[in-house]
Amino acid sequence: MADVVLSEEQHEALVTMVVRGMARGEATAEQTALAEAGLILIKGPMMMPTPAGTAYVSELMRLPDDAPQRERIMATFERFLPVNRQLRDLCTAWQVRPDGSVNDHADENYDADIRDRLDDIDDAVAPLLKRFSEDIPRMTGYRGKLTESLEKLDDGDNAWLASPLIDSYHTVWMHLHQELLLTIGMSRKEDEELEERLVSGAGA
């Protein structure tokens, strides 16, 4: 794919598509061009990156092993993963009550407790995002997006915590996590193993 030359807009559109995994709606000019280059696939109203598109972005975003900021990013990333686990556990609790039944959001006390604990997670991730942003400029936008989803959640629409179909708190978090993995050049599997190691090491 080295011979593909993308405009800045096309590049940005491709990165967004790989981070988000998909897009829906009418294809933009950039997206149409990307499809023609074989980097994304347009299927009716749905678009997704092709393996070639994903490989292109992975190669482009990955920091070189000897990049000076790499060590700092990894150190912050290791602080991020335990918080990541907390967020996933919280989303699970939001969807499923401890007895395994689906959370029907009829128990105000239960929901309010989860919402309250989300503030702890949001507080914990704030300094990490700040630090990531110093080395990875693309990370700057996530703080605002997380806050936006929280505001919508507090306006009373429960979907804004964990729904995968909108830019909910969980969705935005997944995107920023994905972007970190692309930057570090770490696979999802390695990431999960590292998280498990960090969480069990800290807790037992």
């Binding site: 790989v18 981070v19 988000r20 995994g21 998909m22 299927k43 749905m46 997704m48 990156p49 994903t54 995968p164 969705t171 997944m174 995107h175 994905q178 999802r188 599997k189 999960e192």
Partner: peptide, 10 residues
């Protein structure tokens, strides 16, 4: 799948 990522949403 082994595991899913946001890319597997479709």
């Amino acid at each position: 799948m082994s595991e899913t990522t946001p890319g597997d949403l479709p």
